[in-house]
């Protein structure tokens, strides 16, 4: 080996060292950030899977005792079952309404150029720059007048107002992703507009539509303010937990929190593929 060779190989070694060091640093940072997200969720699960006595004991154990005391306590607490049912029903209604109303509008935005299209788009985009839960205030009065106050249907309508703009934008981008040529091809092969949509477009956008439906479900499931303002007897889980924050024992709050979190985890997992497509389009 000549001196030059050694110099070359030394040069080769140093950047590799440097690179592997920075790779370790990056891996460590990523791990810390993952823990930052995951540990709090783990801790609420520890609380939920401990007995109510353990939850208030000192110092706290960092591992669950797998005592179902908290869970049974929560499940049997007055009003919880009903609130849970309300949450599910309102979220399902929101899901159906926002897709039912949003998807046709999304299709129109994606496929046609027509006068008024931009006005509509702007109104939809405007809803994002607007603190929507506040709309619950005037709507509360309107609902009393038309007999929708304190109903699941009424709350679902307000939640639809939160979720529908997203459904419109998301479905519009889904439909834009399906080449118009495919529909035209179907027309030349004997379809009318409707059958072409059902036989060609629908099967292709179905997974995306399902994802945006899940999105609508989660928006409703998580909504607190409008639910608390608009319901008294028909409280959803979030509204129920919010209004009982003062008096309820800790074990109830923690179990309730965990029950709120869990479906969101699964749903998010189901739509993870579409997450970025959905928010990517929110930029336009």
């Amino acid at each position: 080996m000549t001196a030059a060779d050694i110099a070359v190989s030394a040069k080769k070694v140093r950047p590799t060292d440097h690179r592997s060091a920075s790779r370790w640093l990056m891996a460590a940072t990523i791990t810390i950030l993952c823990l930052w997200v995951l540990v709090p969720i783990y801790l609420i699960l520890v609380n939920t899977l401990s007995s109510p006595e353990e939850v208030t004991s000192w110092p706290r154990q960092f591992f669950p005792s797998f005592d179902l005391g908290s869970v049974t306590f929560f499940a049997n607490y007055q009003g919880v079952a009903r609130a849970l049912l309300n949450s599910v029903i309102v979220a399902v209604m929101t899901m159906v309404f926002s897709i039912g109303l949003g998807a046709p509008a999304g299709y129109a935005l994606a496929r046609f150029d027509f006068p008024g299209k931009n006005v509509f788009r702007v109104v939809v985009l405007m809803t994002r720059a607007f603190p929507l839960p506040l709309l619950a205030l005037p709507l509360a009065i309107m609902f009393i007048q038309i007999g929708l106050d304190d109903t699941r249907f009424g709350l679902a309508l307000v939640h639809t107002m939160l979720a529908m703009p997203f459904a419109i934008l998301i479905t519009a981008s889904l439909f834009m992703g399906i080449p118009y040529e495919l529909e035209e091809a179907a027309w030349t092969l004997g379809c009318n507009r409707f059958t072409a949509f059902v036989k060609v477009v629908l099967p292709l956008v179905m997974p995306g539509i399902a994802a945006s439906a899940v999105f609508a479900f989660v928006i409703s499931w998580n909504e607190v303010f409008a639910a608390a303002v608009l319901t008294i007897q028909n409280r959803t889980l979030t509204a129920f937990l919010l209004t009982s924050l003062n008096e309820a024992p800790l074990a109830l709050k923690f179990a309730g929190g965990a029950v709120l979190v869990l479906p969101a985890l699964f749903f998010l997992f189901a739509v993870r593929k579409y997450l970025f497509a959905m928010w990517g389009i929110a930029n336009r």
């Binding site: 997200v37 709090p40 929190g257 969101a264 985890l265 993870r272």
Partner: peptide
Amino acid sequence: LYIWTIPLGISDLAAGIIWLAILEQN
């Protein structure tokens, strides 16, 4: 990315309760 975006599905109420579990006196 999935892990980092998990909080996206968590309501503000649930987040408050979760941090309550961490920060409360006991």
